[in-house]
Design a binder for these strands. Sequence first.
DNA 1: TATGAATGAGCCTTCATTCAT
DNA 2: TATGAATGAAGGCTCATTCAT
Lengths: 208, 208, 208, 208
Amino acid sequence: MSVNERKSDKTKKQIIEAAGELFSTKGFDSVTMRQIAKKAGCSHTTIYLYFKDKETLLHQLSKPPLEKLYNEILKITAKDSSPQERLNLLSQTYILFGLTYKNMYRIFINTEASRVDEEEPELEINKLRLSIFAELEKVIAQRLSISKGEESLLFTRVFFYTLHGIVTTYQDSNESIDELYNRLKLTFEAAVESLLLGFQAKLDLGVG
Amino acid sequence: MSVNERKSDKTKKQIIEAAGELFSTKGFDSVTMRQIAKKAGCSHTTIYLYFKDKETLLHQLSKPPLEKLYNEILKITAKDSSPQERLNLLSQTYILFGLTYKNMYRIFINTEASRVDEEEPELEINKLRLSIFAELEKVIAQRLSISKGEESLLFTRVFFYTLHGIVTTYQDSNESIDELYNRLKLTFEAAVESLLLGFQAKLDLGVG
Amino acid sequence: MSVNERKSDKTKKQIIEAAGELFSTKGFDSVTMRQIAKKAGCSHTTIYLYFKDKETLLHQLSKPPLEKLYNEILKITAKDSSPQERLNLLSQTYILFGLTYKNMYRIFINTEASRVDEEEPELEINKLRLSIFAELEKVIAQRLSISKGEESLLFTRVFFYTLHGIVTTYQDSNESIDELYNRLKLTFEAAVESLLLGFQAKLDLGVG
Amino acid sequence: MSVNERKSDKTKKQIIEAAGELFSTKGFDSVTMRQIAKKAGCSHTTIYLYFKDKETLLHQLSKPPLEKLYNEILKITAKDSSPQERLNLLSQTYILFGLTYKNMYRIFINTEASRVDEEEPELEINKLRLSIFAELEKVIAQRLSISKGEESLLFTRVFFYTLHGIVTTYQDSNESIDELYNRLKLTFEAAVESLLLGFQAKLDLGVG
DNA sequence: TATGAATGAGCCTTCATTCAT
DNA sequence: TATGAATGAAGGCTCATTCAT
């Protein structure tokens, strides 16, 4: 039993890894079950032993990295450092995640809460998104010394647009993620800084 | 001949129109050559008379709407109104374009200048992108009363990220574009305002 | 054009023939599109040019032979010969058809009138079945010198059971149809004769 | 050992039961080994411990119900009641069996004696069929007061065709077996009666 | 005896593309 | 220019069956 368990776990893990890499790189439709199988070193039918179908595989695949992202963000927002610093770190983490796990990121963004008939993963991913958004809002509010409310919601949205815009701008770049990030690090930090300065200024003016 | 020419032009135009509508709505992979042909009122083999393959078709397809966008933006930046107003209008135009022509927008963003082996359209699209970016930079510089340079480049990038982030956030939304835009108009405007205020503040502080 | 038409017609015909033979022999599920294609001398994808899917192919396939059967029966019932003779001929025709076109016969028997959502072939096959039954009833009534009514319906049902029983008894036989029919011809004729004698006797007794 | 034996017997029995129910209802191809295993409460690989393959399983499966049918028929033919009554009862039993155990019935009919290479079940089923046929012939001969011979063979065949025709006519009906049988009981009895009357009349005329 | 793991063969279907006219 | 005919490659998926434990 324990041997089989191990073997089975190993296979499943290999499938997940293979699928993960492939999906990250190639997009849902482009990846075929046979490619995954080949990369995982098993038959394509074996995949169906562990995952109901392609869609399920992708969704199961997406949860762990997304959770990891959330946990990292949690750690960051719990830090002692200044809100500005935390915001910078959070942004960096978010951007790097988005660039690294392209398709998981896409799912993260696109998963609708709606499909209520489904088992659950959609909902969980949706929750995750909301939670991350809430963390972001929290730090932004701290940074601006305001409490959560309409203003913080507005600012968080705008902040999110920018973050998301960065990710999607470079998502299909041929440059390596490291190269890219180093090249544009200052730009990204300037973006964060500008946004916060802008929010502050807007507050000083009295928001709409 | 001239009659045939006209007829031929017409056919090509119909193909482009049909493909354009289909691609805008349904995504590259989902659209089939036969669907396009049907909508264009010709045989699917006819398409190959005018376009090497599906990819080429899509690329050639993207140019006109993109040019249209560019022209609209040109008109806006040429206006007499205040830089802020022009920036707002430009942003609105850009966002609405991105939401309306989903796939053209994707191409607009993703087309690399690199693929030198190809005929040309990549390059032209790339030029278009650069031109639009330049217009954006121009207005931003005007608004901030600075001249083009590193600072304006930085700010334009950040501004662009946000714009692009807005488009991609809502690109797969089920809401109608009108509904969506009306619902979030104020948010978008606040984003633009915040950014500019932030840039200004950053300038006042002295940019890094 | 006319050449293409011819070619196309030929291909379609070949597909129909191949599919017909295969379906007759092997049953719906056992026959694969690739087998049909191979036998028809074309690619399996070509089949989809002419038939929406496998099911449609089979149904389209079934109608013509069934119509042929009906027409043959019509001719027989319109003959001048004695009712008994016509009944014998009709039975022979029916049995031979059932043995020759196994799966068409199955469809003939099993097609339900119910599926109303479908386009039509089900309904038509159903009509055909009813029409054939009606012809049978007509001759039986003539033979027994009764008019159509409950009695003739009852007798026709019983007659039909026997006919159908003969077909299904030998449907999967390995014997060639000719051999089989010659070997059992007298038995089948005796069956028809016995039934009629029995009906007559029952009438004489008063049918309950 | 004896415990294991018992356990093993139990498993086999459970498989047979599960498979029996499934095959009766759903047809050979539609039933999967995994479905059987699930219903039997064992792994699908276990089935292969007891049965060489799916086909063998189905054949071994068919014997018990067929034997049951035979025993029931034996009881009926051994009764004191009139031949006519016994024939009616026998017919009813036969028809109900055929409608209830669809696929076993199919095997009962289709199993060829030929396949000599196989282990044996074919032969046994064939014997069973012959025995049942013999019983039928016996009662028919009694009813007609003739001795077994060419005539009785002929009549039995015809009788059998009708019985078999009834079963196969309604084999795929959606009606419940009870409903159906009650609705058509009189028709079936009329069929039996007519046949016998016909045989008698034919005898009176002098056969062939 | 029993089973979880794994697989190869095969199925229907779709699609971009080419060929011959 | 235009098209109907045809196809190869590929995809997702299912199933009976075997292997190793």
